[in-house]
Amino acid sequence: MVRVTFLKIGFLGVSNLIEALLDERASRRNLSVRVVSTGCKMDEDEAVEAAKLAASIRSDLYVVVSPNAALPGPKAARELLKETGKPIIVVSDEPTKKIADSLEEEGFGYILIYADSMIGARREFLDPVEMALFNSDVLRVLAVTGALRLVQMELDRVIRLIEAGEQPELPRVRITKERALEMSGLNNPYAYAKAMASFEMARRVAALSTEGCFKVKERDRYIPIVAAAHELMRWAAMLADEAREVEKANDSVTRIVHFRDGSLRRKRKLYEKFEPLIDL
């Protein structure tokens, strides 16, 4: 039994379902998961308090999920968890790439998802409904393009090594469009192209959200900018959906599932049986 504790500081799109990626039907017998979260807050006091709680949980692996892991809150949290001596993987977004080398030097693994873009967090625009809709759009993009599968595969790889009693080699992965699409399982070339466009559209959202939230001060200017960011993410999700529908129409959707022992099996047609996964 491998025990994994997820510490969530603030929210990314991937934050919503990351632990569920490892046990989609609640059937695994070799995995136990706990989750500690600060909610949407990312300040240092909140992060440290949550990290102390996470450190008190018996764990073989910690996964720290947050936007911009260079900020004081996420930094303090992982430094506190490092005192446990357990392996730690940071899951974050593109801005974290500026500290990727230092994360590796300090012994942390990392998975940086370049399409998991910042939300348009302006009070005049972002209400709870808009927040939920944005995150649902992000999840669709990450799911179809292969980004979520790559996160899942990297975490599963580390879990298998821990289960075998080996010292795990932690991931140092930057999920660009090419890295994501390698794991997407998309077979039709047009579906692949649609998914690639979807990923890049979602990645562009971060620039608009950053501009509208931090750079532009005039209310009449920043409101349409953050609204445009959300419209762009919506269309990215629609394009991802089109890619998925092409694969469904061709009966070529790749499905990779966990069995009870944690092993992975795959099939590419709806009615065929699963076969052991040996080439990923």
Rank of each mutant, 00 (worst) to 15 (best):
E44K: 14
P67V: 01
L103R: 03
I111L: 04
A76N: 04
L142A: 11
E94D: 14
T96G: 10
T38E: 09
F11Q: 06
R58H: 13
V14N: 03
L81R: 01
L112S: 03
I88M: 09
E105G: 11
G107L: 12
S32D: 13
K98C: 09
A20W: 10
N16G: 08
V144W: 04
D137I: 00
G13Y: 05
V91G: 01
E46C: 11
I113N: 07
Y110D: 05
A50T: 03
D137C: 12
P74L: 11
A76H: 05
L12H: 01
E104P: 00
K75H: 10
F134M: 04
V63A: 02
E44Q: 14
E124L: 02
Y110F: 15
K52H: 12
M131G: 05
C40D: 09
K98P: 00
K86D: 06
D127F: 08
E83N: 09
R34F: 14
S27W: 10
K86C: 11
L21F: 15
P67G: 06
T96D: 08
A76S: 15
I88T: 07
L139S: 07
E124V: 01
L12D: 01
F125Y: 15
F108L: 09
K8Y: 09
I113A: 13
Y62W: 10
F125K: 03
S27D: 13
D101A: 15
K8C: 11
D43Y: 13
T145K: 00
S27G: 08
R123G: 12
S102L: 12
A20S: 14
S56C: 05
E104Q: 14
E19L: 03
A20P: 00
S117W: 04
P72N: 08
G120K: 04
L112C: 04
T145A: 01
